[in-house]
């Protein structure tokens, strides 16, 4: 519906837009004065600034590492879309890939120049935060959901407490807490990196919401499944991993996808605690007085970037949902 509305709005403004965006636009120049005399859009801001927008303060000569990081994540994401690859092993692949991307950016190994995380930025940072959130958050969500249904009162209380507290506050406060409070709890001299603190905050936030979704899936599994698994002698973890979770997670997958998409959008919040994700990096790029007037064009580019990512994920999720409602085995 919203998409339709947006399309209608586009339609009525389309003639003006076309002349602004295409006919009178400046596509390429290294001198922002060319843009001032033109009546149209200044797309040159993107050609001129795209490196900073996409990679932030990451050293210019090492941008290929960022490109490689983006490629690894996108390729793996596409592969993961195919049901035939779904297994716990796929999760391990993601875990390894996340670590690999982290090392690739960090350097100091394999003859790569070390680059401190304070220099990271742009799309690689956005994607790494996002992937780290999901890869770290999913197992935590499953454990919280299982814990919430545990017959051990202490574990149950702990999980309920964690879930409800995190869900009771906005993400931004979780991020501030993570960035300000962790240092207080750490022993003297131990500092955790700002990026890691943000990631932990994002993981906790994602996990608390995803846990409730997973719990819904667990509740949908009939008691008979538990009993049949127990009757063939499976242990708690065998039963959980092989019988209950595969069914529960399939049921809630579309719902989980919307949390995943939200996790992607939520990466933008890290700029508030001083990390330069792709949005933050763009803001920095526009601090250049020569180009600041063309912020609109730059943000249109960022808009399209986010839209492509979120739209493809939500399309995919709708496709899963359709499969599920048609009763097909996911």
């Amino acid at each position: 519906m919203l998409t339709l509305l947006a399309m209608w709005a586009l339609f009525v403004t389309i003639p003006d837009f076309i002349s602004w965006a295409f006919i009178n636009a400046v596509w390429q120049t290294d001198d922002s004065k060319d843009c001032q005399v033109a009546a149209g859009a200044c797309w040159a801001v993107i050609t001129e600034k795209h490196r900073v927008m996409l990679f932030g303060t990451f050293p210019y000569d090492e941008h290929w590492r960022g490109v490689l990081a983006i490629a690894i994540i996108i390729i793996l994401a596409v592969i993961s879309g195919f049901k035939r690859f779904w297994s716990y092993r796929l999760f391990l692949v993601w875990l390894v890939a996340t670590a690999l991307v982290f090392l690739l950016l960090l350097g100091g190994v394999f003859g790569l120049k070390p680059i401190g995380t304070y220099q990271w930025g742009g799309l690689p940072l956005t994607l790494l935060l996002f992937v780290g959130t999901v890869v770290g958050g999913m197992p935590l969500a499953v454990l919280l959901a299982l814990g919430r249904r545990s017959s051990l009162p202490a574990i149950k209380a702990l999980c309920i407490g964690f879930i409800e507290i995190i869900r009771g506050v906005p993400l931004i406060t979780v991020l501030f807490m993570a960035s300000l409070m962790f240092p207080l709890f750490m022993p003297e001299g131990v500092t955790i990196n700002k990026l890691l603190r943000a990631e932990i905050g994002m993981i906790m936030f994602f996990a608390a919401y995803a846990a409730e979704i997973v719990r819904g899936g667990l509740q949908a599994i009939s008691l008979g499944q538990y009993e049949a698994a127990e009757a063939i002698g499976l242990s708690y973890w065998q039963k959980t991993n092989r019988i209950i979770l595969p069914q529960a997670l399939r049921i809630v997958l579309p719902a989980l996808m919307s949390d995943v998409i939200r996790a992607f959008k939520n990466t933008t919040f890290v700029s508030i605690i001083g990390l330069f994700d792709v949005l933050g990096a763009t803001a920095t790029a526009l601090e250049d007085l020569l180009w600041v007037r063309y912020a609109l064009e730059a943000y249109i580019f960022i808009f399209i970037l986010y839209f492509v990512f979120c739209f493809s994920m939500s399309k995919y999720s709708a496709h899963l949902e359709r499969d599920l409602s048609e009763g097909r085995n996911l």
């Binding site: 009939s222 008979g224 499944q225 009993e227 049949a228 698994a229 127990e230 009757a231 063939i232 002698g233 242990s235 019988i243 595969p246 069914q247 399939r250 085995n329």
Partner: peptide, 23 residues
């Protein structure tokens, strides 16, 4: 738990509602 699992291995059970694993 160990004893229970050992005993369950000696016993097969068939339920009214089959309870096969649908996945």
């Amino acid at each position: 738990v160990r004893k229970i699992e050992a005993i369950r291995r000696q016993i097969g059970m068939v339920f009214q509602s089959f309870n096969l694993f649908p996945h």
